[in-house]
């Protein structure tokens, strides 16, 4: 798992961004940027080079699912690992996210061990 991976975290709750950033810091990921909705995230993704997206679902003006679809439809971004971290825990949400190409799915509230495990799984153990 490359700890220098450029990570984009997306959430409309500033506190949640701060929590995820701090948990990532504990996992030794320091190359982290933030966006507060899908639209801002997409602009940052298109302008930069990111190796992992960690996104909430319920945001305006663009949800996490819609961001995921945009990422998968973009020739340059489509392979970017994408983890959804959300309170949306219905089966239909998980199924929709999987159909859209999500790499993994974490339900809130979550713990640091779950986050570490999912990142390891999508980035590899190396």
């Amino acid at each position: 798992m490359d700890k220098n991976t450029h990570v984009l975290i997306v959430d409309d709750y500033k506190t949640m961004l701060r929590i995820i950033r701090n948990l990532l810091k504990q996992l030794e990921f320091d190359n982290v940027e933030e966006a507060s909705d899908g639209q801002e995230a997409l602009a940052k993704l298109r302008a930069g080079q990111f190796g992992l997206v960690i996104s909430d679902w319920n945001m305006q003006p663009m949800t996490g699912l819609d961001l995921l679809k945009e990422v998968r439809a973009d020739a340059r971004l489509k392979e970017t690992p994408f983890i959804m971290i959300t309170a949306e825990s219905k089966t239909e949400n998980v199924v929709a996210a999987k159909a859209a190409g999500v790499s993994n799915y974490i339900v809130k509230p979550f713990n640091a061990e779950t986050l570490r495990g999912k990142i390891e799984k999508v980035l590899g153990h190396a």
């Binding site: 949800t63 819609d66 949306e88 825990s89 089966t91 199924v95 993994n104 799915y105 974490i106 339900v107």
Partner: peptide
């Protein structure tokens, strides 16, 4: 509304929400 907006319902009540283990099994 987009599919993402249609499916954005917020947290489920305890007892009706899927656990991380159930979601992992589904995936």
């Amino acid at each position: 509304r987009t599919e993402g907006e249609e499916l954005a319902n917020g947290p489920q009540l305890p007892g009706t929400a899927s656990s991380q283990a159930e979601i992992d099994a589904l995936l």
